[in-house]
Design a protein around this nucleic acid. Sequence first.
DNA 1: GAAGTGGATATACC
DNA 2: ACTGGTATATCCACTTC
Length: 816
Amino acid sequence: MKTEFIPLDFDYFDFEGRNYAKIIGRDKTGKRACVIDSCPVYFWAVLKEKTSEKQIHKLQEKILKIKLDLKGRKSCVEKVEVCNKRFLGKEVKALKIFGTNYKDLHDIAEQLGEPEIEKRRGYDLGFVTHYIIEKDFTPLNWYEIEGDLLNNSFEFGGIDSSIETDSCIKLNSKKKIEKTEFTPRVIAFDIETDSLQIGEGEILMISLVGENFQKVITWKKSANFPFVEYVKDEASLLERFVEIVKEQAPDFLTGYFSDNFDLPYLKARADKNRVKLSLGLDGSQPKFSRGIMTTSKVDGIVHIDLLRFIQTAYSQYMQSETMSLNEVAGEFLGDAKKKFEFKHSSKIKEDEWEKYFEYNLQDSILTYNLFNKFWPDLLEFTKTMQEPIFNVSRNGMSANVEDYIVHNLKRFDEIPEKHPTYDEIAERKNRERYEGAFVLQPSPGIYENLAIFDFTSYWPSIIVTYNLSKSTILEKKEKNCLEVDINGKKVYFSKELGFFPQMLKEIIEKRKQYKKELAEKFDIIKKARSNAFKLLANASYGYQGFFGARYHCAEASAATTSLSRDHIKNIISKIDQEGYKTLYSDTDSIAFLLNKKTQEQAKQFLKKLNSELPGIMEIDLEDFYKRGIWVTKRTGEFGAKKKYALIDDKGKMKIRGFETVRRDWCKLARETQNNILKMVLEDGNEKRAVELIKEVVKKVKARKFDVKMMSVRTQLKKPISEYKSLTPHVVAAQKMLERQVPMDPGSSIEYYIAETPDKKKLVRDKVKLIDEQGEYNIEYYLKNQILPAVENIFQVFNVNTTELLEGKKQMTLGEF
DNA sequence: GAAGTGGATATACC
DNA sequence: ACTGGTATATCCACTTC
């Protein structure tokens, strides 16, 4: 039979000792289909340079005899081919060793201790990745496929009857086609429970939302609401949930924090109630991976935890201070979560149930809308990395970079490098830290007429221009190579473009092209693709420095930063020589005074600078600014780095590093500082700001502010038990635990510093949770929040804040 | 017991 | 363990006098 098919979920199974890919997707009629396929499995033995033909032949014979009987499976080497390949850029002779089962390749590789064999590679990709590469059958692209329809057949142990798809096809051939239309069927879900600890409480209700479908199932309260369905008990609730998912037959099941909360909770309650949560198309229950981060997998239906994806792809560009569904939806959908102040449990008043149902439904609606909002990104990320969307949606950026590399090696005829072993990781982590970027110490003050230049894609442009990577580093100096001094030690890189810099170059070029096309005509898919390439480029430098990377190369990272320091210092001196005055610089950007020169002159000067840069390196005009302020560090007289505020002609501010942008300061301190920066930057003097701070202090003393303005939010970075020092936020976390609220790494805690009857000295002794009765500690908020936030700003104008507020002396002598 | 200092901790910048 | 290094600032924990 022939049809069109889009692969969504990739899995595999073993049958008679061999591996078969099991791919779930949709056909052209929108029906769910399962495609079964196989591919040769093999790994590589890279041979030493001087191995003779005779030795190779002998080796082949010997390897062909390898047989294994492990884990109840008979496996053997089925074929050995001699190939000319590349490994880390070098031409090599390698044996392509075919086995029976992918999972046995590692064991076969371990038996190859022959001296002629330099390295064994390509057995650690996992069957699914290997299959995608081998067959070039990539996720979320349309294919024209031809195969045998399995209908009540005995092939593969009767898999077609055990899997709930409309068809099951044994693949014979496939061809990629130019078709993009695909609207995924999505069900978003959310649960409400009595306790926040997994499985500890009862599940009170579950909401499900799809296209033209909204429902809340509950067993707690029979009610007459149009979207609420009542069932008799918790077990029925779980069974009904499974039933609805089956009826709706979604491609994607999506939740928010559902990897770590909703699905594990559902499974735990199903176990307790002795019912099966058979969500999988093969009838299986969700499977959970162990590790720091739980991942929850449902067979055949792709479970997407949107929080995980948003965190890696978007959090660095977000304004939201927490990753709560409420805030994230607010930012991306402009849609705030319904606000309910009641406790999330069954212990609520009779008339509050309706609100609770609405609330539960609303969470699924938001999740559903967020999924659609991020669908273009999920799609393009997946197509770019060429790994299953289940993985891509959970990957960090280093894994994304690695997936991109691994799926693009074929073009370079490269044998994949292996994943580092446990010992190698330990060794890499132990290495000395290499020197990073250059940051110029600013002189505190307020300045007028500024410009900022910055290098575009600084790290990647250096890696590409200078060809820095694991595959281009040289063991010793060669003719016409690059020499970089790293802390007195010389490192050399070849000038023959390596595959990693080459890939990176393509990524940057593609990104540039999409950006240009986007400027001409907006296209949501192109925008997502451009973003995927941007993130890939940005993460490439960190990837090479990352200890867990297959293509880790600390020397390349150290060379990248070393060259970055040379370049930025060089540009700074050119700027100053030209008659401008550099004020500040951090990594890839330079802020300087125009002095008497015009903006047009600066633009012309930029062109000149660019003409002198090597390779793909480029400087851009970030913007012009009317005014800017740099302050001193709180300890010492020097200008603080990474802390400044700017304002442009339109009154738009750019604030970096100040408490205003720090989540771990109270709202009042942040807002006050923000207002003061605004006044000072708008006016060029401190007069209005002085009046404001006096007013704020007066109001703090008179307790005019709500305690909400005083709350401090801090994140827990590790399990509470691992903290060596008992800081205020740890004390707050302990208080949360007493309330049975789980406190895991990543949880954030909101607390304030309260007045205490006895004269306790430590801040932590005054910690109260945000909803705890009490009054804010006036002295603490003045001395430790408000004043520290504004002191350095006033100091620029020679105003001593302490004296100002104690009313002793308003101005220091310097003022006159 | 106050004062000074280094370590632990969180968060931001690029 | 799940990208890198640079930097500021707070509060605790400890030492010193």
